[in-house]
């Protein structure tokens, strides 16, 4: 399995480390020419969503990645990337991939003093550690979206078919379960594809 990690800005190395511990290979996506490699899944890491959104466009990555996601490429977004996938962001006029039917709130817990860690239930995984850094949350989801985790009454993880988002950073905790969940998602997706043909 080969996972592309968007590496224009943010904590992409942390994701690479998680994947290598799980035995999955990965490569960095920094410019358009990186997209010629075969990709079974895409991770867009935490960072600053305004920076990533701008660089995606300036480096010619936006349209090709959007098309891949719309065509069903499994994608996993943490924190800032949740905002890149959100169909609607309540306190920001900018839209990015907008492929998920969710309403997100940006910097929803305030500035850095509002950052926190927690332990909470994640659907099917049990209780997992979660780190929220200047995090967004999901205010509401469409009917095709499955809520996977709720922290203090706010949606912290959700899935729509092969798109997975978490408001927290599983790559910052020493717990591989969410990354394993994403790899399982890709396998299921591939099995379905083969079955369909």
């Amino acid at each position: 399995m080969n996972i592309g990690i968007l590496s224009v800005q943010g904590a992409f190395i942390e994701h690479e480390e998680m994947l290598s511990r799980l035995g999955a290979s990965c490569f960095e996506i920094r410019q358009k020419s990186d997209l010629i490699r075969p990709m079974d899944g895409l991770i867009i890491p935490g960072g600053e969503s305004t920076v990533q959104g701008k660089l995606l466009r300036d480096l010619g990555l936006f349209q090709p990645l959007k098309e891949k996601i719309e065509a069903g490429l499994p994608v996993f977004g943490t924190c800032a990337e949740l905002l890149l996938l959100a169909g609607s962001i309540k306190n920001d006029t900018r839209r990015h991939f907008a492929t998920m039917d969710i309403v997100a709130v940006r910097n929803a817990y305030g500035r850095q003093l509002g950052s926190f860690s927690a332990e909470a239930e994640f659907d099917g995984l049990g209780t997992i550690p979660m780190t929220f850094i200047r995090a967004p949350y999901i205010e509401s989801v469409g009917e095709n979206v499955q809520v996977l985790s709720v922290v203090e009454g706010r949606i912290a993880a959700a899935r729509q078919k092969s798109q997975l988002v978490t408001a927290f950073h599983p790559e910052l905790c020493d717990d591989l379960r969410v990354h394993r969940y994403f790899l399982d998602m890709i396998r299921t997706n591939q099995a379905k594809d083969r079955g369909g043909r």
Binding site: Q9, G47, Q112, S115, F116, A118, I133
Partner: peptide, 20 residues
């Protein structure tokens, strides 16, 4: 809720990586 400020503060810097 457990809050290790030093860890969280290190984590914010991690999010700034690769940036200006």
């Amino acid at each position: 809720m457990e809050n290790n400020r030093f860890e969280l503060n290190k984590n914010l810097a991690q999010m700034l990586k690769g940036g200006v």
